[in-house]
Nucleic acid binder design. Structure first.
Lengths: 217, 217
DNA sequence: CCATACCGACCGACGGTCGGTCGGTGGCGG
DNA sequence: CCGCCACCGACCGACCGTCGGTCGGTATGG
């Protein structure tokens, strides 16, 4: 009658838990997801979960770390491709959003505990992606398509504001502003990185990156 | 022996609760502060707190709203002063940090629930201050000291990244980066708003705004 | 046979609720 | 002008359900 205890290698079980938790966290919010919920979804007992993770918070941290690592790998690949600098620049940005749709999706509802999730993700993303993207910009500066004295700093500023302003889990109820903000951020990037005005916007449009057609406002 | 029940007008009691909660939240973190703690600090019973607030979360929201309103008032005053545009621009930024030291201070410790607090503050600040600051920039554009086609958008981007990058409750353990980031943000502001390079930096230095001396990096 | 993975009853703390109490105030009859 | 009383906003604290986390013990498989 007992459903037969199944044992798995720790790494795999860890991933199972992370998968379930990620789905639930993004679906109904971190606070609103109980450990019990995760247990039921994975099909394990409480003790098992706490055998693999020290706390609920560590699970959240685990999701963010895992996702960030995946994105960083993809970003690195894109950054190292033999494409034009502008293509690679936009490609890295795309890698951030494309690979993490799970993080950006759903949970339009109530707040507590969710902004936390989003902001931690953003911070980790900025930390991980800034050096990669700055490298691309530096190459752009070297070849003349970009022009700035502080690539790393400007990239950091751009990534931070991008992460915040395009996340509707943070600026609640302003999802309709996202196209405007996307255009504004591209415009800001052009200015800050000193590339030909409109160069990023048109390239973004060609790459079919959302809301990247016109001027801001 | 019973300490005699003291009754106050609701508004005042509300403020008392907000005061205590703000002190505790910033001291030991939102999550780590129990409702019980607040009760003890204010010297009231649980029912009383829940007579004035619907939930712990509403208290947090109340603190943020109150602080934002105060800052907005001060920012408005500064923006309307008969000073040079650049002075007023920096003055508004200063108003944000000066008037909200309670929000930025302390609680270097453990994470959960605190980033939430900070990020909500930042979002509200951006919402409240953007129009005020954009107005100043527009005046600057009109008189020629600034030059940008999208004042509102650029201000929004600047405020967002400022809020994030200068808050050590968000980028944990990077407090030492703040001077560098301050300089970078000023530099970015100069570029985005199209004012004379170094104009903001020197003015900031004259106004004794922290870490605003040299170029970025 | 021993480490590793797993189980689930149990615990204490916490956020939130609820029935009820207290003190001041305004109206009204005397 | 006084005293009574109905009313009401503010206040109280015992109580409850839920939740994150613990622990002693058990199955599995190398």
């Amino acid at each position: 009658m007992t459903p037969a205890r199944i044992s798995k290698p720790a790494a795999q079980r860890r991933d199972d838990i992370l998968d379930a938790a990620q789905r639930l966290f993004t679906t109904k919010g971190v606070q609103a997801t109980s450990v019990e919920d995760i247990l039921q979804d994975v099909g394990i007992a409480k003790g098992t979960l706490y055998y693999h993770f020290r706390s609920k918070d560590e699970i959240l941290q685990g999701i963010i770390t895992r996702t960030t690592e995946r994105v960083a790998v993809k970003a690195r690949q894109v950054a190292d491709r033999p494409d034009p600098v502008i293509t690679r620049f936009l490609g890295v940005l795309a890698a951030m959003r494309v690979d993490a749709p799970e993080l950006a999706l759903a949970e339009t509802l109530h707040g507590p505990g969710n902004a936390e999730f989003h902001v931690l993700s953003i911070v980790e993303m900025v930390r991980a992606i800034t050096p990669i993207l700055a490298e691309v910009v530096e190459q752009g500066v070297a070849e003349g398509s970009f022009s700035t004295e502080h690539p790393q700093d400007m990239v950091e500023i751009l990534l931070t504001s991008m992460g915040m302003l395009l996340d509707d889990g943070i600026f609640r109820g302003e999802a309709d502003q996202i196209p405007r903000r996307t255009a504004a951020l591209i415009s800001a990037a052009e200015t800050l990185l000193g590339c030909r005005p409109g160069a990023l916007a048109t390239a973004a449009h060609d790459m079919r990156i959302a809301g990247a057609t016109g001027g801001a406002r």
